[in-house]
């Protein structure tokens, strides 16, 4: 009787991790590109956090705007100080869910629907992504466009040719099992 309890307890713990399995990416990459007449701007963030819950088909991502690296340091300052106002809105976040369940085999295209919050403004967005499973890890990548104006980011008219109206965002996350507590 006691042995059976112990066995079931072990089974319970084991199942608990399998059922509620969550995966985390701690060094996710998000890159954005602004192609404009005067100059092309590219910035990369290598410290994006993301968490995936296959059980509930939920996904979330969060990043510090400060962590974006630009080719020119002055752009980093202007991005944070004059455009994205990272003192007031330090993070950009995404919260959404996978439209379909995940199959076990090979790379597959999935659609994610959710809400992206940048500069304090939240927008609905649908993202096409490729998910691949290798052993117990997942890789997720994709790209989408964001309209700068949607997020109330002010660009002075005199600099309107320096910054694109629509910015291309690319992402690449490597998920590993999330150890809970």
């Amino acid at each position: 009787m006691n042995k059976l309890r112990l066995l079931l307890l072990l089974l319970f713990l084991k199942l608990g991790t399998v059922f509620g399995q969550q995966f985390i990416a701690r060094q996710g990459q998000v890159t954005f590109f602004s192609y404009a007449t005067v100059e092309d701007i590219e910035a990369k963030n290598n410290q994006v956090l993301s968490i995936l819950d296959f059980d509930k088909k939920e996904i979330a991502a969060s990043m510090l705007m400060r962590a974006f690296v630009f080719k020119k340091n002055l752009m980093h300052e202007h991005f944070n100080e004059s455009y994205i106002e990272s003192d007031l809105y330090p993070k950009a976040t995404f919260e959404g869910f996978l439209l379909e369940g995940l199959e076990n085999a090979g790379p597959q295209v999935q659609f994610i629907k959710g809400k992206v919050t940048i500069h304090g403004i939240t927008k609905e967005i649908e993202i096409k992504t490729t998910i691949q499973k290798t052993n117990d890890r997942y890789t997720m990548s994709g790209e989408f466009n964001l309209t700068v104006k949607d997020f109330n980011i002010k660009i002075p008219p005199i600099l309107s040719n320096n910054i694109a109206k629509v910015v291309l965002v690319k992402f690449n996350f490597q998920y590993e099992p999330y150890e809970n507590e």
Binding site: F12, G20, Q22, S50, I51, D55, A60, S62, E95
Partner: peptide, 15 residues
């Protein structure tokens, strides 16, 4: 069990 304990928002976890 998973449904009760995972009530915490994913974004809160990331924070």
């Amino acid at each position: 069990f998973p449904f009760t304990s995972k009530g915490q928002n994913l974004l809160d976890k990331l924070n």
